[in-house]
């Protein structure tokens, strides 16, 4: 039966936040569950397991993805960055610090995903990716609130810290480098 075949463990190596981890995982384990349950990197959150809420967003080779929609075995050659890889409570990444300063969260459960998503999103912006708002002007110097809202809409926040998340990202994008 097919489920027994799928159940046999696969040996794999994941590179997360610059550290290599040798694992033997059920082929059905998602990248999200590998991080949370097997590596106990619980900063990455599970909100829906269906790619609908964005709480599980991590960076894979610098690109943001919903880690719940991807199997761990697909990422042997990749460099994965999670919230723990950006900064620690004692030494925050400037975007993490901006979230604290602007109160860009309440319960904190979507926050890791919002922050990782914002890092990825700003990379897309720098590379000239268009959004639903239309082709960006190539000369656009800095991202504005409307673009941030549009590009961050895959990350839900039921506490609805939205306006303050946008402020935090805008602040970081404007001062990027200066604070870092």
């Amino acid at each position: 039966m097919s489920w027994i075949e799928a159940d046999s463990g696969a040996a794999l190596t994941l590179s997360v936040n610059g550290m290599r981890h040798d694992l033997k995982l059920d082929a059905r384990v998602t990248l999200l569950d590998a991080l949370r349950e097997h590596l106990q990197l619980t900063g990455t959150k599970k909100g829906c397991d269906h790619g609908q809420c964005g709480a599980c967003t991590v960076l894979v080779n610098g690109r943001r993805i919903n880690s719940c929609l991807s199997l761990a075995v697909m990422h042997q050659a990749d460099e994965i960055t999670t919230i723990e890889g950006l900064g620690t409570a004692e030494n925050l990444h400037p975007l993490q610090a901006a979230f604290v300063a602007k109160d860009g969260f309440q319960c904190g459960y979507c926050t890791s995903g919002q922050i990782c998503s914002a890092i990825g999103m700003l990379g897309e912006w720098r590379e000239g990716w268009p959004s639903h708002l239309g082709d960006r002007a190539d000369a656009a110097p800095a991202i504005d609130a409307a673009e941030i809202r549009e590009r961050m809409s895959g990350n839900l926040c039921r506490c609805a810290a939205y306006p303050r998340i946008v402020e935090a990202i805008e602040h970081y994008a404007t001062h990027e480098g200066a604070d870092a």
Binding site: T42, K46, T88, A89, Q96, F105, G108
Partner: peptide, 19 residues
């Protein structure tokens, strides 16, 4: 006043029930 639990929440260090 910024939340005193803020640094733990934005860094993924705050542990929720399933963690």
């Amino acid at each position: 006043i910024a939340r005193i639990d803020g640094p733990r929440k934005v860094s993924g260090a705050a542990r929720y029930a399933a963690e």
